[in-house]
């Protein structure tokens, strides 16, 4: 099932390089736009380090992974239609293979980030194991969504459009490019507060994932209990629901494709 990984960049001369170039470009853009031009003040990390790029990467890399798994899962069935119609094998492997191959890339990116943190004076060694557990929980959460969307996309081919928009909203509804404190500090008279957007905000499980990553890697503190609970429960619920939905519809995949 390494097929995804090896097929993806084969034929392009720089191969693996491209898979790292993309997040690199995004990091550069966000650092310039939000760090330098809009002057978003990052929170103060461990050892008094205050660096927008590190602050950003601790959330951007998990976000990219999540985004990749959801989109990869969604495309998994349609891209492999021929395989599904002609061979018998457990169909969920297609979604899992997308997750696994993206997880490898994710892990490499996180390793690079860990080195960067070390170089810039925030030694993350002790926090790598909890971070790895968190990475796995995020993978489980995203896979559950991927499973659901993979079958939804077969039955409704325009699901992809809806999901693209949803992911765009979700990106800004998650504290990736700005600190969470900005949301908690909105003035009670503002439009955001009056529409209760700030209370809705915390219903987004990704907020908690991203905060947990930042707690562990950037600020070196244990995430609070609510965050931990939301992360653990949401990943379990997502996988369970994804599995149920997937199995409900997987039987007729070969004829619907």
């Amino acid at each position: 099932m390494l097929r995804e990984l090896r097929g993806k960049y084969k034929g392009t001369a720089l191969g693996w390089f491209w898979s790292l170039l993309n997040p690199l470009a995004a990091t550069l853009i966000f650092t310039v736009v939000f760090g330098a031009i809009l002057r978003v003040t990052p929170t103060v990390g461990a050892n008094g380090v205050q660096n927008y790029t590190l602050f950003l990467l601790c959330a951007l890399l998990p976000w990219n992974f999540f985004n990749g798994v959801v989109n990869g899962g969604m495309a998994a069935m349609l891209d492999n239609a021929n395989l599904i119609k002609k061979t018998a094998f457990p169909r969920h492997l297609l979604v899992l293979s997308a997750t696994v191959s993206l997880f490898v890339t994710f892990a490499i990116e996180m390793a690079v980030l860990a080195v960067a943190l070390l170089v810039l004076g925030v030694n993350p060694i002790l926090w790598l194991i909890p971070a790895l557990i968190l990475m796995i929980l995020l993978a489980v959460f995203a896979t559950g969504l991927g499973l659901m969307l993979s079958v939804a996309n077969v039955y409704f081919r325009d699901s992809a459009h809806v999901v693209t928009i949803a992911m765009q909203v979700l990106f800004y509804a998650t504290p990736v490019i700005y600190p969470l404190t900005l949301v908690s500090d909105v003035s009670p008279t503002s439009l955001v507060a009056r529409l209760h957007i700030d209370s809705l905000y915390f219903l987004n499980p990704l907020v908690h994932y991203v905060e947990a990553f930042r707690d562990l890697l950037y600020e070196h503190q244990i995430p609070d209990l609510t965050t931990v609970l939301v992360v653990v429960l949401s990943s379990g619920a997502s996988l369970w629901l994804g599995w149920v939905v997937f199995n409900r519809f997987a039987g007729r995949l070969a004829e619907e494709l």
Binding site: R3, R6, G7, K10, G11, N82, L83, K85, K86, T87
Partner: peptide, 8 residues
């Protein structure tokens, strides 16, 4: 050859 990947 249903499962073949053309690039590989």
């Amino acid at each position: 050859g249903a499962g073949f990947h053309p690039e590989l």
